[in-house]
């Protein structure tokens, strides 16, 4: 069995509040603290798509930054392919797309990829070929020479994705890849994620919009206020053992009446709900969030 792509163990991250720059000189005297991530553990297996889901401020980005080595954990650890996060060797195996990224606005799409490619040690024809391949993959061939200042949000996310995988990393970390992108753009991004998975690349993504990611994730973790609330495969999380749903298309009211009658015939069985289907994951999430909110 191969090593897990990401292994987070008992991760805790505490911020001293005040200006973000204040922690340069390490912890000051007193002051208030924010526990952004609280004893979080999970793992992203090699080759799977893992989605961390939670509302804004629940600690998703912080977790990713620790995994990337942009921040150090207050307690616990994060490992990437068995290496400590922040190890430069680990980073050559990671591609990262931050949330709402802005790249150098004055560079064209091609130049952006060239810049990041060179940072990863690529050069010459290999780099140029890779750039063409990626631009085609993310469907930005037409905008190759255009400066990023003129890119739409969706295009920025896509060039960001291309940038992230320029060195063929084995793990891609995406922070809110579909946030702020229109449905078509977010569809494109989801297709790309699926493509990455097909190529055997592990993906660790996070989102606060569940329906946008649920179909691509193999594993989902639900994080709220820095703590893991529930974790499992999509099936595990959303299926309810004693329930079964049939989704009908173009069914007449008469047919539905008929089915209702049939159900009524069986002892113990009942129709728990009916109506137009909802995103079940979202519902589950809302339930969890609501419960924690009330007992917090």
């Amino acid at each position: 069995m191969s090593e897990p792509a990401v292994e987070v163990k008992n991760l805790t991250k505490v911020f001293q509040t005040g200006s973000p720059g204040a922690n340069v000189f390490k912890k000051g005297i007193a002051g208030s603290y924010v526990v952004a991530v609280d004893n979080l553990s999970f793992q992203v297996n090699s080759g799977e798509v893992y989605g961390l889901i939670g509302p804004n401020g629940s600690g998703k980005s912080t977790t990713m930054k620790v995994v990337l080595g942009l921040m150090s954990p207050t307690e616990g650890s994060a490992k990437v392919f068995g290496l400590d996060s922040g190890d430069i060797k680990a980073r050559s195996e990671i591609g990262f797309l931050p949330e709402n990224p802005y790249f150098y606005r004055h560079l064209s799409g091609e130049e952006t990829l060239k810049f990041y490619g060179k940072l990863c040690g690529l050069k010459g024809k290999a780099l140029n070929d890779r750039i063409s391949e990626l631009l085609e993959m993310v469907d930005l061939e037409g905008a190759r020479k255009r400066r990023l200042a003129g890119y739409s949000k969706g295009m920025l996310q896509r060039i960001g994705l291309a940038q992230a995988i320029i060195q063929r990393p084995r793990l891609v970390i995406l922070d809110e890849p579909t946030a702020g992108v229109d449905p078509v753009g977010s569809r494109q991004i989801r297709d790309l994620i699926i493509k990455l998975k097909e190529e055997g690349i592990s993906v660790f993504l996070c989102s606060h919009l569940l329906e946008q990611v649920q179909e691509v994730c193999d594993h989902v973790g639900i994080i709220f206020k820095g703590r893991m609330r529930q974790e499992g495969t999509l099936e595990e999380l959303v299926s309810i053992e004693n329930r079964y749903s049939i989704v009908l298309e173009d069914a007449s009211p008469a047919l539905i009446k008929e089915i209702e009658k049939l159900v009524a015939k069986e002892k113990g069985a009942s129709i728990a709900e009916q109506g137009n289907p909802k995103t079940t994951l979202e519902r589950l999430f809302l339930k969890i969030a609501g419960r924690k909110e009330s007992d917090a």
Partner: peptide, 14 residues
């Protein structure tokens, strides 16, 4: 501010 630093520092750059 632009978070460009994240993408650069998450590449193998010291």
């Amino acid at each position: 501010e632009d978070r460009t630093l994240y993408t650069i520092l998450s590449k193998p750059v010291r």
